[in-house]
């Protein structure tokens, strides 16, 4: 990889969005072809980008279809275009436009803010819980789903350096760092990172739910269950070879995601197991219901059975541990 930056020397913001945009800023400073288009969206670190790189920034307005079409025109003229909007809107409102630019293999990188349930009480319109399922249908579109600030920064690099279009779904807020900066290159090149090794069960998760899964491994350890944990950072294409070596000889697998059951990580791993002719038992934990009422993310998790206690119980049942 042609590295412009020594990853380990870079300051990583604790805010997962700022971590992405800070890295994008570093890239754009060195490559004038890089453009950032927004659908009237802000983020703390974007203010500095707008101030320092005004020639490489356009607010297209709340018009996602035009956002992608303008990006297509710019990309056809040699620009490397990042577009930023709210995850469900910048994927679903303009899905057909994305289909077309993906078919044309344009250098367009979609940044969707508000992965999964991160918009909480803003409600169902703002939740991105089908986006992985639909975006992975687009052949050639890379999908990144960072779980912390290090992987978020890595996503900006992966998008920029990789071939063809990409989609990165980013959470909101500050989370504990899961990855050290030494893992950066592995995230970009391998797409899958083992966080814990475990002999009893291996958890596979992606995005924010890796944070949850990490807490679950600790709860399981308290019950003398050794659970491994894999962060699936790159969802499309699924890095089959890396997944194979990360899973090793795991006896049982559990996927944990904040996405509809159909089309997400659990679906991908199921397909992968079938294709590999592996008979490893798999439990898929995902969203199975529409939330009744409005609430914040922890409340939604409780309602949907995605809180740590529910998840731990489900996994123990799967392992036949009372």
């Amino acid at each position: 990889m042609d590295r412009m930056i020594d990853f380990e020397s870079v300051h990583i913001s604790e805010d997962i969005r700022d971590a992405f945009f800070d890295q994008l800023h570093r890239i754009a400073e060195k490559d004038a072809r890089v453009m950032l288009l927004t659908a009237d969206m802000s983020a703390f670190s974007l203010e500095r980008y707008k101030r320092e790189l005004p020639q490489q920034y356009v607010n297209v307005g709340i018009a996602e279809q035009n956002l992608i079409n303008i990006a297509a025109g710019l990309a056809k003229m040699g620009k490397k275009v990042f577009v930023y909007g709210i995850a469900p809107f910048v994927t679903m409102r303009c899905y057909e436009q994305i289909k077309i630019v993906t078919e044309m293999n344009l250098d367009i990188h979609i940044i969707g803010a508000g992965a999964g349930l991160s918009y909480g009480s803003d409600g169902y319109t703002h939740h991105a819980v089908q986006d992985i399922g639909i975006m992975r249908l687009l052949r050639g579109l890379r999908i990144y789903n960072p779980s912390d600030s290090v992987s978020s920064a890595a996503a900006a690099y992966a998008a920029y350096y990789g071939h063809g279009p990409s989609y990165t779904r980013i959470d909101k807020g500050r989370f504990p760092l899961i990855h050290g900066s030494a893992v950066w290159e592995r995230l970009i090149q391998k797409g899958v990172v083992s966080i814990n090794e475990g002999t009893d069960v291996t958890l596979l998760s992606t995005g924010f739910m890796v944070q949850q899964a990490l807490a679950i491994t600790e709860a399981l350890a308290a019950q003398s269950i050794q659970a491994g944990l894999i962060d699936v950072f790159q969802l499309n294409p699924l890095c089959a070879e890396e997944l194979n070596s990360a899973i090793g000889n795991s006896k049982k697998l559990v996927t944990i995601e904040e996405h509809e059951r159909a089309g997400g990580l659990g679906t991908m791993v199921s397909e992968w197991l079938v294709d590999q002719r592996r008979m490893t038992p798999l439990k898929r934990v995902a969203i199975d219901a529409q939330p009744q009422g409005y609430g914040d993310r922890p409340w939604l998790h409780q309602m949907l059975g995605l809180d740590t206690a529910s998840l731990t119980r489900k996994i123990m049942e799967f392992l036949n541990v009372k």
């Binding site: 279809q65 079409n69 297509a72 025109g73 436009q97 077309i100």
Partner: peptide
């Protein structure tokens, strides 16, 4: 590609901006 209607002007505007 312009089999799908309605996208050419936005793409053209992106080209003109560039």
């Amino acid at each position: 590609d312009s089999g799908s209607l309605g996208n050419g002007l936005g793409m053209g505007a992106g080209m003109a901006l560039a």
